[in-house]
Amino acid sequence: MFDFAMTDEQRAVVEVTRAFVERELYPHEEEVERTGVLRPELATELRAKALAAGLYAANMPEEVGGAGLDAVTLVLVEKELGKASYALQYTTVARPSNILMAGTPEQQERYTLPCVRGERIDCLAMTEPDAGSDVRAIRTRAVREPGGWRIHGTKHFISHADEADFVILLARTGTDDAGRGTMSIFLVDLDTPGVSVREGYRNVSHRGYTNSILDFDEVHVPADALLGEEGEGFALAGTWLGATRLQVAATCLGRAERALELSVGHAATRQQFGQPIGRFQGVGFKLADMTTELRAAELLTLHAAWKADRGTATDADMAMAKVKASEVLAMVADEAIQIHGGMGLMDELPLERIWRDARIERIWDGTSEIQRHIIARSLLRPLGA
């Protein structure tokens, strides 16, 4: 049996996070939306405040200076952060990739600890122009040479690489007996000769949150740039993907909750035909469906986190949380606009942003189709199908 009632400690963490979001992030949402830019000086200021509030690197273990929060508490924190503009909350309240915990003591000293302290910023590079969901199809190669490795290839859709200090890079390093590429992960400083960061694509979702194209032109990295074991990059990346899918699910819950709260308030106060519009079944039933689906998604996400804390979570658990929460967000955002009518599409309210931002959640960190494939595979494989 599981009990998701918040402990006193969890309640305190949620209250601190909620206060930070409302006091420090909400006031800057309009600026980021209108300009499409998160000013560097504002990002620096908010990072310092996040560090002071104890919210920075909350996903990292205490042994490296992080908050060491359990998965359930992290979901509660991410849900609160998710209510704010993505550019503001994700860029300024950093969650260094937990894949860095696979590093050697020297790598952790150079990369992990500075990330936790807010002195360095990481980015992850997996996706390529010809390899998205099919990670094994990547073409970026790392070839052994005297003193290290030589890397050549291109990555794209790399989140906030334009402000990162180093990249966690997945590259092909060989071929297995079945002819499939074997992968390894490298830590590459972005000021390394041969590495270039190009402006990425304009995105309808998450204004101010940038993506970039990374080119590696015969880049030499030393032997100690290898993270983990050679050829084990695919498995290592898999440990990271589960955590990020849970994170995506949680932030989707936060935005859906914000849209629902606005909709309930509007339905209770907006008068038409002499009564609040929430009394009409056409609106009231929408609210009922929105809250029912949101609570179902929340339970799936908390259940996956609960299992993660016990070491029993599966890829399917994470996939179910991610696909349900991202699709519920899309539904709630759309219905929220319908309830608000024309004003829902005006930028005086955050609903049109939430609606736009919702679209990417069903694509990144594994599309809804990939999540369903993972779930279906977990059902069929035990039967040999």
Rank of each mutant, 00 (worst) to 15 (best):
T140E: 05
R110E: 09
P114M: 05
E145K: 15
R117M: 05
E128Q: 11
Y111R: 06
T127L: 05
A125T: 07
P114E: 06
T140H: 05
C115P: 03
E119C: 01
D134N: 13
V143T: 14
P129D: 09
R117L: 11
I138C: 07
Q107A: 07
R136L: 15
E145C: 15
Q108S: 05
A142T: 12
R141Q: 14
S133V: 12
A137N: 14
G132V: 11
L124C: 12
V116D: 00
R141M: 11
T112Y: 03
D130Y: 08
E145W: 10
D130N: 12
I121M: 06
R136F: 14
R139F: 03
E106Y: 02
V143W: 01
G118Q: 05
P105E: 04
R110I: 08
I138N: 09
E145G: 11
P146K: 13
A131P: 04
V116C: 03
P114Q: 06
E145V: 15
A125I: 06
I121L: 11
M126N: 08
R117Y: 01
C123M: 09
M126G: 03
I121R: 13
I138R: 10
P105S: 05
R141T: 15
R139Y: 04
M126C: 10
M126R: 14
R136E: 15
P105F: 03
L124K: 08
I121D: 01
E145D: 09
D130G: 05
V116I: 12
I138H: 06
R144F: 07
C115V: 00
D122L: 00
I138P: 04
V143A: 13
R117K: 14
T112P: 00
Q108G: 04
V116P: 00
E109F: 01
R141N: 11
P129S: 08
A131F: 06
T127M: 08
T127R: 13
R110Q: 12
E106R: 07
V116H: 00
V135T: 11
I138F: 07
R139T: 13
C123L: 04
P129W: 05
E145N: 09
E106S: 13
D130E: 14
T140C: 13
V143G: 00
D130R: 09
E119R: 04
Y111M: 08
I138E: 07
A137L: 15
T112C: 06
G118Y: 02
R141P: 06
A142N: 12
P129Q: 08
C123P: 05
R110P: 03
C123S: 12
E106Q: 13
P114C: 04
R141E: 15
E119T: 00
C123F: 02
P129E: 10
C115A: 13
E109W: 00
